[in-house]
Design a protein around this nucleic acid. Sequence first.
DNA 1: CATGAATGAGTATTCATTCAT
DNA 2: GATGAATGAATACTCATTCAT
Lengths: 190, 190, 190, 190
Amino acid sequence: MSGTRERPLRADAARNRARLLDVATEVFTTRGVGVPTEEIARTAGVGVGTLFRHFPTKEALLEAVMVRRLEAIASQAAQLAAEAEPADAFFACFRLVVEQSAGKNEFARALAVAGVDAHAALRESSEVIRAQLAVLLDGARQAGAVRPELGLPEVIALLAGTSTTMEHLDGDPAAQQRVFDVVFDGLRPR
Amino acid sequence: MSGTRERPLRADAARNRARLLDVATEVFTTRGVGVPTEEIARTAGVGVGTLFRHFPTKEALLEAVMVRRLEAIASQAAQLAAEAEPADAFFACFRLVVEQSAGKNEFARALAVAGVDAHAALRESSEVIRAQLAVLLDGARQAGAVRPELGLPEVIALLAGTSTTMEHLDGDPAAQQRVFDVVFDGLRPR
Amino acid sequence: MSGTRERPLRADAARNRARLLDVATEVFTTRGVGVPTEEIARTAGVGVGTLFRHFPTKEALLEAVMVRRLEAIASQAAQLAAEAEPADAFFACFRLVVEQSAGKNEFARALAVAGVDAHAALRESSEVIRAQLAVLLDGARQAGAVRPELGLPEVIALLAGTSTTMEHLDGDPAAQQRVFDVVFDGLRPR
Amino acid sequence: MSGTRERPLRADAARNRARLLDVATEVFTTRGVGVPTEEIARTAGVGVGTLFRHFPTKEALLEAVMVRRLEAIASQAAQLAAEAEPADAFFACFRLVVEQSAGKNEFARALAVAGVDAHAALRESSEVIRAQLAVLLDGARQAGAVRPELGLPEVIALLAGTSTTMEHLDGDPAAQQRVFDVVFDGLRPR
DNA sequence: CATGAATGAGTATTCATTCAT
DNA sequence: GATGAATGAATACTCATTCAT
């Protein structure tokens, strides 16, 4: 399978792909999903054709952006889980996910519109994070740092919601910290 | 005589307007703002021309939908404020707004916008709710039921965020209740 | 035939018709044929329905405007023909038509687009003027005031062209006069 | 090899642009500016998208058509000015402009516009012709071939008007010649 | 008769996607 | 592989005309 069929251009291709992902991330986050593919391509310094060679669909590009983000989150979460006490790890991870998801709610919605099927890669990546969160949540609950009645679904929903909350307080870190206080205190047993 | 289905009479204009608002509310909420005007019109049982006679712009339709929702919230909130103790009124109102905004991230978002140009009607309506919330929040803080360091912006952001959270737990009222517990406990002083 | 079937409202109807014609003349002349019927109706103080009762078609309204103008020209031309020497009458009539047609070239074109058929009333009215011009031209030629080789078609074409010329010199009566000098001198035998 | 029908190659973009301009010229001239863009595209054998890629706006297409025409006129006028005596050159140029504008009242009109905002290219081109005409007119006046009291505005207005006149005599070259005689004689001093 | 709400075909323009070079 | 010209379906909005009141 791993024959010698690779051509020397592969490096350029990879660079193009990466550049497209970077541009798309930036552009989708700051200006929404409505930005024309052509503009993304131009900003990345390639033709539209190249964009569509790498991502057969705009939606696929969207998905790739999210997957990359999710993978980054997952790897950071893994590190957190390894380095900290269960309870601390849980809260740190909560914060991490919220902060990394800022401005990304719109994507999720855009993807959701197109139907739940497909997006296998996405589901896979989020499954990883889900699993990590499940473990962390369990540890935190057993350590008595999180209400025992809370399940993973509530926590994930709270993740999304807190991310939205943070978007609304974009320029005000102090207010964002106060919100974290509220949510984290709320998560703890009475 | 006072049947439920008069033929298209003059006063039918009002009915068409209302129907358009209903359809638009439903459709914007469940499928996003991207739904074609033509489909909205068709679903409401009128021609596109009629839609544009009532709302000169798609944006105007969106605004009208939001205003109607905001006004409903405002009037319910006013009632709550009159009938309950400050603290109780605050939490009841919080819950009210969240529930009314369920599935309407875009609406709750409007609450926090208050800075877009044009959309005078929108700003006006959200200003009313803002003011109501400010009063309730103040009362609740003075009653010692809400952390004194929390300001209106954080509360509004939390409103939007909690609404998002609830969307994610759509079919599960028990989980939603648990989230309310988390947020409400978090809002209380230590 | 002329029974007693007339109702008292006839006077209002006539007034509406006249008002519509006035408004349409003004509006078509100053802002072009593209002005919406609804605006014409509103300006005339009636509903669109009334406009379409009087003129079954926008084109019919256009035609009516032109016919009225043509009839006015014809009657003034008749008077000129009666009161002046053949040559003077010809030139006076030429000037009259040019001045009365100012800004009306666009109409003609709009009507022409819709096909040469129909517009019987229009053809009838212009036929009258044509005939008058033919007589005047003949008189002027016999009086030696106009080149003998010029036919009615050339004169009519020159009428239209000079009208266009005048449109271009709208605010400058002195320049317009100089153009009349050019054309009138040119019409005379070497 | 150098056939007349290469397959859609890269350089075909230029061909498409030219074809669009040709079709637009023809269609705007004969049927007015109201012709749908889609029809222009179809007639040119391309999709609407292609039309809008080349001309971002219908107005831009109109402008391009006019500019092309104006430039053709300007270059021919320059040649005339170089080859003939001032007086002859003036009359030849007058005829040239009239004939090139035949059926294009809207084009000749552009000559006199020179005051609309935007349309920089248009204004530029018509400015060139204006300047050429100014020179020729001056020469002809000094040569005693044109009435000294006539200014550029009158001449330009007469250009447009004579063009209209010619339109009305479309199939009759003899009559058109007679009109030129009238106008040219009229332009000469007494 | 007058009114103006309703209609819907028509129009300019955008944008994801394809494909010849 | 990369490019960008071409495509055409889709969309918001307009306006002449009809018709219920």
